[in-house]
């Protein structure tokens, strides 16, 4: 179990990097749109084509990298009224089963996301901006990456749950610990 703990601790840095990437993207998105509003009102034109960049680049970057961190924080909602009345061990076993199903689903999304990114690369997918074409296919690789990290997070939580009498449903490690 110690190696698992160590690996999980190391993985936390990866998740945290994802969080910072997504969070900073949202901050940039704010600045970007405000600048666009300003230039449109002062100069009458969307200078950067901010709508396309926001849509094709920033929104996906605000979401996929942070998936694993958000999941691990325990924010994803679920019903607990029945399971809370069960014995901890039974509750753990049910949780492991549910997370197992989730692991399969997100592994599938990782696989399909990878295919999507590859086909996007093959086609050199791009959007038109100011009369030219801007490729956006590189961003598609964040789809499988995000789902892969999420799958790994779920896998860790499953393994940790096996080692204790109660389900491990979220990361206890806080950002402050990583920060320090």
């Amino acid at each position: 179990m110690r190696t698992v703990d160590q690996a999980y601790r190391a993985f936390h840095y990866v998740k945290y990097a994802g969080l910072l990437l997504s969070g900073t993207t949202i901050f940039v998105m704010m600045a970007f749109i405000v600048i666009d509003v300003a230039t449109r009102n002062l100069m009458g034109s969307s200078v950067f084509g901010s709508y396309e960049i926001t849509q094709y680049f920033l929104m996906p970057l605000a979401f996929f990298p942070a998936l694993a961190y958000a999941y691990g924080s325990g924010i994803m909602p679920k019903l607990e009224m029945l399971t809370n009345r069960l014995k901890p061990v039974l509750r753990r076993n049910i949780a492991i089963l549910m997370m197992g199903i989730e692991l399969v689903l997100f592994s599938l999304l990782t696989f399909y996301g990878w295919q999507y990114a590859l086909s996007g690369t093959r086609e050199q997918l791009g959007f038109s901006m100011k009369g030219g074409i801007v490729p956006y296919y590189p961003i598609l690789y964040f789809i499988p990456l995000g789902f892969l990290l999420l799958s790994v997070e779920i896998l860790f939580l499953i393994i940790k749950s096996f080692g204790q009498k109660e389900p491990a449903l979220e990361t206890k490690l806080e950002t402050a610990e990583v920060d320090a």
């Binding site: 034109s45 969307s46 901006m129 100011k130």
Partner: peptide
């Protein structure tokens, strides 16, 4: 709405706005 419109707008000096 399309790339060709952007080219035309650019050529006659119309500012083009992009928006859903």
């Amino acid at each position: 709405p399309t790339r060709v419109h952007e080219i035309f707008a650019n050529n006659v000096g119309i500012s083009s706005i992009s928006m859903p």
